[in-house]
């Protein structure tokens, strides 16, 4: 299972770059909450790919689906099992 450690990584990353803001719920849109910029997002994806050893295939993924913690975890989980989002 990849979910728990990756979730921790996401939360820890968000906390680091937004030390004074409350953490989001799994479903909340991280961009709308201004917790992530597009540049932060790329850094987070790189971090998650490095940590999990899983590379996301963006020719198959709509980045809009990755705007929440839930979406991010689902994408990595799907990539690990070979299924498509």
């Amino acid at each position: 299972m990849t979910t728990p450690p990756l979730a921790e990584t996401i939360l820890s990353f968000l906390k680091k770059i937004n030390p004074h803001q409350p953490l989001p719920t799994a479903e909340q849109n991280l961009f709308e909450l201004a917790l992530l910029s597009s540049s932060d997002f790329i850094t987070l994806i790189q971090l998650l790919e490095e940590e999990s050893g899983i590379l996301l295939d963006f020719t198959q993924i709509d980045p809009a689906a990755l705007a929440s913690m839930q979406g991010l975890l689902a994408a990595f989980s799907a990539a690990e099992t070979g299924s498509k989002l």
Partner: peptide
């Protein structure tokens, strides 16, 4: 291009 897709629009292009 939809806003949420703009920073990695590979799938959109294809």
């Amino acid at each position: 291009i939809p806003p949420a897709t703009r920073f990695a629009p590979a799938r959109f292009i294809l």
